[in-house]
Design a protein around this nucleic acid. Structure first.
Lengths: 208, 208
DNA sequence: TGTACATCAGTGAACGCGCGTTCACTGATGTAC
DNA sequence: TGTACATCAGTGAACGCGCGTTCACTGATGTAC
């Protein structure tokens, strides 16, 4: 139990403790959930004294931020992969499904990501602004799939709607109330596709 | 500071400490956020010893559950009011806006509600199942506004989609990234309307 | 109407715990000469 | 190539804190007779 991933004849200096701490944090997160994620627990999991992390992070919040930031990068990568592999006509839905699946496979990490975002009252800057971010991928894919927004604002609204839809679904999909729908439709992914289908993700299909 | 809402010549027996504790919890929640919501803090805020709550709640979780349950009732009431007051053609959107506004006005309570739901991996039973719950209001309103689903499953999917959309938007609407959209559109509510507009909430407007 | 007593709903002190953070320290590393 | 020394990245003990919960208790209430 103790030193689970550490040990193996450690030298005094660690090599890359910063990395090791972030990895340890993620292990704790998925094994025991966000409430178990203390600085001390992370140090313990990394096989290091409680004071050691302070040579790499100013305080607990800074560690958490680093974990969250890596989460956003992972999400971004997962969505890039999904877009690449999908049929041209299916790319937008594929992005949505990749988003929700990431959240479902890494629920505690996903929570930490949004907790950090809520604290700052903002998504990570590069997630929303930088070219090639997940947000921009969604936006660009809408255009590629034939959306014809009347203005930049309309396009931004459509992208926002899609993002909110995916986030909402990500948080709801695990609820027991929807189990019978998943069964009826033949699994989680068909269920996600079906819900996305009802959301009118494509800007061409707006009402009013 | 201390005894802020308590005092005023309290007798030994409180009268309705259970009520007072739930109210105290809500005050703490909105003043200091979910992380400040400890059993001891609630007792303090209610002007009572740390052990007193145990005569009314088995443990901290039970208090939290009670707070969350009342939150769901408040949300339900807010949505009922919104539906009543809206133009017939606008009732579904009005429900969505009422949902998001509730979350925005009671962010910490909203978080506690969903934290409890996530623990149980389910929405409160009566919220999803009981006639006249918020979920059923959304479903029924879809029908009233002319949705013509091919099956009960389709109707349930559409309702689920709307619920997820509202939840996603509720959690995103506060992010700074969307401030310029709110300004452009003339405020938060117009922004919400616009995003809902892009979501194709009405089942009649589905793609594929 | 008055009294005995069971029950209820509080008190306040104490428990053990894990937390974030600080501190003086020390072992390892690498650079200047 | 060897040595002195500054710097870096750890240790481990300690700090004060607030937490959830338990306990023996006591004051207030209300019911039976």
């Amino acid at each position: 139990m103790r030193d689970s991933h550490a040990a193996e004849a450690r030298p005094y200096h660690h090599g890359d403790l910063r990395r090791a701490l972030i990895d340890a944090a993620r292990r704790i997160l998925e094994a025991e959930g966000p409430s178990a994620l203390s600085l001390r627990a992370v140090a313990r999991e990394a096989g290091v004294s409680p004071a050691a992390p302070y040579h790499h992070f100013k305080d607990k919040a800074e560690l958490l931020d680093a974990v969250a930031a890596e989460g956003w990068e992972m999400l971004d990568a997962a969505m890039a992969r999904a877009k690449e592999q999908a049929e041209p006509r299916d790319k937008l839905t594929a992005l949505g499904i990749a988003y929700v699946c990431f959240a479902r496979e890494n629920p505690a990490l996903y929570r930490v990501m949004y907790d950090a975002a809520r604290d700052k009252e903002a998504l990570p800057e590069q997630m929303h602004a930088s070219e090639d971010s997940a947000f921009c991928k969604v936006r660009d894919t809408m255009i590629e799939q034939g959306a014809d927004p009347e203005s930049a604002v309309e396009l931004e609204l459509a992208t926002t709607a899609a993002w909110c839809a995916a986030h909402g679904l990500a948080e709801m999909a695990g609820f027991k109330q929807f189990e019978h729908l998943k069964e009826t439709l033949g699994g989680e992914v068909p269920f996600l596709r079906a819900v996305f289908g009802h959301m009118g993700l494509f800007p061409g299909v707006r009402r009013d």
